[in-house]
Design a protein around this nucleic acid. Sequence first.
DNA 1: GCTTGACTTCAAGTGCGCTTGAAGTTGCAA
DNA 2: TTGCAACTTCAAGCGCACTTGAAGTCAAGC
Lengths: 165, 165
Amino acid sequence: MTSPHDRLPIGELAGRSGLAASALRYYEELGLIHSERTSGGQRRFTRATLRRVAFIRAAQVVGLSLEETSAALAKLPQDRAPNAAQWNSVARTWTRRIDQQIAELEELRRKLTGCIGCGCLSLRKCGLYNPGDAAAGSGAGARYLLGERPDTVGVDAPGVTPGRA
Amino acid sequence: MTSPHDRLPIGELAGRSGLAASALRYYEELGLIHSERTSGGQRRFTRATLRRVAFIRAAQVVGLSLEETSAALAKLPQDRAPNAAQWNSVARTWTRRIDQQIAELEELRRKLTGCIGCGCLSLRKCGLYNPGDAAAGSGAGARYLLGERPDTVGVDAPGVTPGRA
DNA sequence: GCTTGACTTCAAGTGCGCTTGAAGTTGCAA
DNA sequence: TTGCAACTTCAAGCGCACTTGAAGTCAAGC
């Protein structure tokens, strides 16, 4: 577990994770991953970093920003596999998020299908209208649907990066 | 249908659509929407533009870029409601895309749940690994999952903007 | 020891989808 | 007629997640 083979240079980590070295450096700069250095100043990552990187990739799919991912990663141990409780805590947040996204997509599909049925898209009737003010378009991709979250309409969705009018 | 009230100034369209005027100007610049001008050079949009704008919003939720949205919009009439056939053709593409996204999210959830069960995330065993090379991270948000689309692995996903190593 | 490829830092650039600001013009209501 | 909000264009800026390039250093195999 602490053999010399556990100390991956960045190219190795890049190769194994499928990410560019530049991206990994960037992640390290942001504090998402960590490395030790050789006497010459080159990075050496532990194998556990592979886990963190996989986590980051998955987080991006769920729609987390690197900042949010960073917060999530902070709950996991840096150099060993998380235990069940730790993992549970994170994964539960995720599955909730995933469920929410799925629900939103299904809602949109429902609206679209409704449109097919009614031949509408002629204002008003159609579920695609009523954008609900400043809801959607939170930058980092498919986040909130237009017209969704009627309970938080008129307010920036909670927990989402503020910016962007 | 062609009353003077059908000619919306940009602020009106912005208010009704929930988008910023600047965004609408940007869309017009890209050719997604169109306007006529008053003698003084101010934009006047038809009500039908509301439909196009709603369409654009929905398209963003599905993860389409404005360029892709533009292509989709080209299939719909500019100043009237689409007929069933036109709408069908577009909506079908969308529902397929939505279904695909849902499937991907469910797959990720499955993997996460598996992780909870097995207490893993300890390399190898876990479905979260094997990133499948250059798959995910196509820029505009939750597009393709890591490890997904095993049939197109190693190739840029078809129909998706090339860039980004 | 030397070569060569992998590494280092730092600054600047990229692409998307806008927003912001400056400086000027229009249109409508009083 | 005037006043003022709403509009106009154009250029530049922003935030995210990186990538690219320049210029230099390290490490490992021959």
